[in-house]
Design a protein around this nucleic acid. Structure first.
Length: 704
DNA sequence: GAGCACTGC
């Protein structure tokens, strides 16, 4: 395959994905920097690119309501800016500086690093809060790191976030739903609290959008009596990063089969390029396994080109141990080929990064140009995962991965013409690709009534909004005036779960099966309790049969949980039964949290003592909108009651091939077919009981 | 008998 190398492409770098922690070579031998003296830490801090801008940043924050910082990888902005603010007095008088992150792990590692640099105990002056863990001390903690979701939750107690003087929203360019909600709310708060300062950290490509969103200088006057109040026009500051140049290569002709192109490019690199590991971006597990198979075949037939290649898969479904294989040092004479989903774009664990083996090896990146993305169809109310072209922003992020160690190369499996003329500049924000039920309820809980008129960074479609309002109304969470009902609506808003799951919990209180239902709720809130068992499906199926219940997956989960407790939460037991031990531990954790919240809501934990109908009725009370009926004389074809969509029971369900007449499902995955995941049998009369108004017009459909 | 990009409260 031929690659063309344009001379004009500027080196591009990845965004600051792990909070600007710079990988310093003198730090490698030590797992903790506490062995370094104060002077040494000071020197390290001053070497960071952001240090040059210290005065400028403090000036801008002082004088502008909002400051947008465009910072590249390794600029050090996440760890340093909160410290600069503290040094400049923004944390005096009991005020707190906040810094939000989209991911829990980033919150933990960045806060630990900052506490270390300042020389305080984590949880005192510097603390963090994530779900399940609050390491802050009221009145003492003045620099606080937290996930954006937690900050949104805090607004339910304190709508104006009065204790914060500055809020820095990091990784805003990722445009996750919670970041976008947070940005919308912070803009509102600023109107009421002109003294609040915002710092938005964003990639170049999103900076302009953020500027426009926060630019209120034309629309309103400075608040009364504050002639010298902050400038309402946001300031933008660029901070360079630390990285090496990356040469970009494009293909000359569009490729028809990107997996074959990936394989031939790997062989080309192996044949012609000096040592250095390869990182390949593919769309999913299937792609990755096909590529590994093709490479293995290549090794058989053509030993020369593929000698020394060490293919390693990387995707979230792998166990922790399997993922960590990519961090082991490359053996001499070998070349690691990491075949990854976009987990490598943002979400690799920081501890692993600090070990540096990964980045210290990768010099070549191959970009397929595709990733799996979620899309939502408000008409059918179905979310699906589809392979779609990535954006220019993602392409830059991916290529930057090649320049972490030394100058690198990125091979894009699309033409330069395509990149320049057709590839979209940025991705569609998650908000515009999702079901909005949870989003709407969060805003309602914060007293925002005019959902359709809310000032979003990127407004979702009215159809999606209306669909969400409709579902919440049918769940009796919203009333005729689209206000939260009391107590149901307020209770649902308090539970950190999908509203359908929350509604199921509330119903279980009346049905006397809350003990069972919160277990089910905890299981439904995580990905899957089963391990991915390639090649041993038969054994896993047999293991599943040991727990299987005729009523469906939800009841099966009760048996799994019971078995886990009886095993005394043994990892060995999980292994034997093809259950994911990490997931089971998480189930226990979430269940404990739900138990605490349930108690606060006045729900007393009560077991139905084997009355499985009560459990199924409670599930129906939450998920009645997902009811399906088996088409008579069809081979497992179901039709959704709401939209007459053709759906099937997923082969992973215990009801696969059982095909009962009536079921409700938790979610749909759509691939070749639309598959229902987590399915339970119901009696159709329960639908009209649970949601009479919802099924009134559909009476004819529910004839037995 | 087929498949689940990635987060978060």
């Amino acid at each position: 395959m031929a690659f063309w190398k344009p001379g004009t492409e500027k080196p591009s770098f990845v965004e600051d994905e792990e909070g600007g922690i710079v990988l310093m070579s003198n730090n490698l031998s030590s797992s903790s920097s506490s062995s370094f003296g104060y002077a040494n830490i000071e020197k390290q801090r001053q070497r960071l690119p952001v240090y040059k801008y210290r005065t400028e940043i403090l000036y801008l924050v002082e004088n502008h309501a909002t400051t947008i910082i465009v910072g590249e990888t390794g600029s050090g902005k996440t760890t340093q800016i909160p410290q600069y603010l503290k040094e400049a007095g923004w944390a005096e008088g009991g005020r707190v500086i906040a810094c939000t992150q989209p991911r829990r792990l980033a919150v933990q590692s960045v806060s630990a690093r900052v506490a270390d640099e300042i020389g305080v105990k984590l949880g005192d002056e510097v603390g963090y809060t994530i779900r399940f863990e609050d390491h802050t001390t009221s009145g003492v903690t003045s620099v606080k790191f937290l996930t954006d979701g937690v900050l949104i939750r805090e607004m339910m107690e304190d709508p104006l976030l009065t204790k914060y003087s500055v809020i820095m929203v990091d990784e805003a360019h990722e445009r996750s739903i919670s970041t976008d909600i947070l940005l919308g709310l912070l803009k509102k708060i600023q109107r009421r609290r002109p003294e609040l300062r915002l710092i938005i950290s964003s990639a170049t490509i999103e900076a302009k959008a953020m500027f426009n969103f926060f630019n209120t200088s034309k629309k309103r006057q400075a608040p009364e009596g504050s002639a010298q109040g902050p400038n309402l026009e946001p300031a933008i500051l660029s901070v360079e990063g630390r990285g090496f140049s990356v040469k970009i290569h494009y293909v000359e002709e569009p490729v028809s089969d990107y997996i074959r192109s990936v394989v031939s490019t790997i062989l080309l690199i192996n044949e012609r390029e000096p040592p250095g590991d390869v990182l390949v971006f593919l769309t999913g597990q299937d792609d990755i396994e096909t590529t590994i198979k093709l490479l293995a075949e290549e090794a058989h037939s053509n030993q020369k080109n593929s000698s020394g290649l060490l293919p390693l898969p990387l995707y979230s479904g792998l166990s922790r141990t399997e993922q960590e294989l990519i961090f082991t040092p490359t053996p001499r004479g070998k070349r690691k080929v990491i075949l990854s989903t976009n987990i490598a774009e943002t979400s690799l664990t920081l501890e692993a990064r600090l070990l540096c083996y990964y980045y210290f090896g990768v010099v070549y990146v191959i970009d397929s140009g595709f990733s799996k993305q979620k899309f939502y169809n408000p008409i059918s109310d179905i979310e699906s995962l589809v392979v779609a072209p990535i954006s220019k922003a993602s392409a830059r992020q991916r290529s930057g991965r090649a320049g972490r160690v030394r100058p690198g190369k990125c091979y894009r499996l699309y033409t330069e013409d395509y990149f320049l003329k057709e590839m979209p500049g940025e991705g569609i924000p998650e908000m515009q690709r999702s079901n909005l039920v949870s989003t709407v309820i969060q805003l309602k809980a914060l007293g925002i009534d005019n959902i359709l008129g809310f000032d979003w960074p990127s407004p979702p479609s009215p159809q999606a909004m209306i669909r969400a309002l409709e579902v919440l109304y049918s769940l009796q969470i919203l009333d005729d005036d689209a206000k939260l009902t009391s107590p149901t609506g307020f209770q649902v808003a308090e539970l950190p779960l999908d509203p359908m799951i929350s509604k199921m919990i509330l119903a279980s209180n009346e049905l006397g099966c809350s003990d069972e239902i919160i277990t089910i709720a905890a299981v439904l809130s995580i990905q899957s309790v089963w391990v991915i068992a390639r090649g041993v499906q038969k054994e896993q199926d047999e293991a599943k049969l040991r727990f299987a219940a005729a009523e469906g997956d939800h009841v099966t989960f009760l048996n799994v949980y019971k078995g886990f407790l009886e095993s005394k939460k043994s990892s060995q037991w999980c292994y034997k039964n093809f259950l994911n031990y990490q997931s089971m531990k998480k189930v226990v954790e979430i269940r404990d949290q739900l138990k605490r919240i349930a108690r606060r809501l006045g729900i007393t934990l009560k077991s139905c003592e084997g009355d499985i109908d009560a459990v199924r009725k409670a599930v129906t009370a939450g998920f009645f909108a997902n009811a399906c009926r088996l088409e008579p004389h069809s081979n497992g074809v179901f039709k959704t009651i709401r939209g007459s969509e053709e759906v099937y029971i997923h082969p992973s369900s215990v009801l696969f091939r059982v095909n009962p007449k009536w079921v409700v499902y938790q979610s749909i995955v759509s691939t070749e077919r639309q598959y229902m995941r987590n399915v339970v049998t119901i009696n159709p009369s329960w639908l009209t009981e649970a949601a009479p108004h919802f099924y009134q017009n559909r009476q004819n459909n529910i004839s037995l």
